[in-house]
Design a protein around this nucleic acid. Structure first.
Lengths: 173, 173
DNA sequence: ACGGGCATGTAAGCGGTTACATGATTCG
DNA sequence: CGAATCATGTAACCGCTTACATGCCCGT
């Protein structure tokens, strides 16, 4: 799951700094986890490869990058040609295979807290989606794509919340 | 998402070889992706740390490991104390944020093939679940845990399939 | 006898995290 | 003036993937 092309993808929307992009990934937890050192490292590599360039310097050494034509071509090519990694890596599900190694009360506690977490996340993404739907710019293609991504968050988290509830009913009978 | 404790978890069920465990991860794609070199490397580390030990040698250099009391304690402690990584890393969802960078016909093709893939996976896990439900040993705690894991696969893949369908309806209007 | 699957490994390299490090600016 | 936040980086390390490597056993 290439960070490289994710950075290019965001910069295709509009120029931004490493800091901006870090915030963005933080706000959209469905995307993937990213740490800031990795972002800055990758931005420097992308600049060296001429796929992005510094557009503007801001206060505090802020570097606003913009994508180059080469960079834009690179993301598009990634989307078109690079095979998709379909692996799921959901630790909560992974751990569920070992539920039998827990004490019964710990199983219940585990599933309860997972359900609570997933429910909260689902709500968050549903709210996020509702906001986007009310927004005036909802026909702009970028907003539409993001709306679709947010919908995935809402649906996956909802499914996981319902799964945890179902699992609770399975274990205590 | 620790492989280390996943190996211990499987060996807590019954003795097994690296090869056995590799097959097992392959069959349960919801768990997490694993490559065989990593498994063999980690098994050797676990043996050095006395959390597992060679139980039996089979044909072709087959090494069947069994968990030690220390190892069993270690998995249980992991389950009880180690914080869960709640990050989602679904590349299909990740890419959806950049749908707007694709040609309209490529968007449709992308969402169609993703929907097909997720639908197939959902079916696979639903079948898997049905088999487990018919099984005589369904009240054994290990089988019950695995049944819960399989249910997660069925539900998450179903949610993703429905999401992809929904997304298709969003893009072509 | 030979092909396919069983079975385990090593080595290079990369992507990623964590800890460390530094300093500027803004706001109250 | 001090705290919080903005802002970017370096270094060490580890987990993981990919490619390479080797050989045995079983069924036909």
């Amino acid at each position: 799951m290439s960070l490289r092309y994710g950075l290019l993808g965001f910069l295709a929307e509009r120029p931004a700094s490493g800091y901006d992009i870090t915030r963005r990934f933080e706000a959209m937890s469905v995307l993937r986890p990213v740490s800031h050192p990795q972002i800055y490292t990758e931005l420097n590599k992308l600049a060296k490869d001429k796929l992005i360039e510094v557009n503007e310097m801001g206060p505090r050494g802020r570097k606003v990058y913009k994508i180059t034509p080469h960079g834009l071509e690179a993301v598009k090519n990634w989307l078109k040609s690079e095979p998709i990694d379909h692996a799921l890596r959901i630790e909560s599900v992974y751990r569920s295979a070992f539920l039998w190694l827990m004490e019964p009360q710990d199983q219940q506690k585990y599933l309860e807290s997972e359900q609570a977490f997933f429910t909260a996340q689902a709500q968050l993404y549903r709210d996020h989606a509702a906001t986007k739907d009310k927004h005036s710019q909802k026909h702009d293609p970028v907003t539409k794509s993001l709306r679709i991504t947010v919908e995935a968050g809402a649906r996956v988290y909802t499914a996981l919340a319902e799964w945890a509830l179902w699992a609770r009913n399975q274990t205590n009978k």
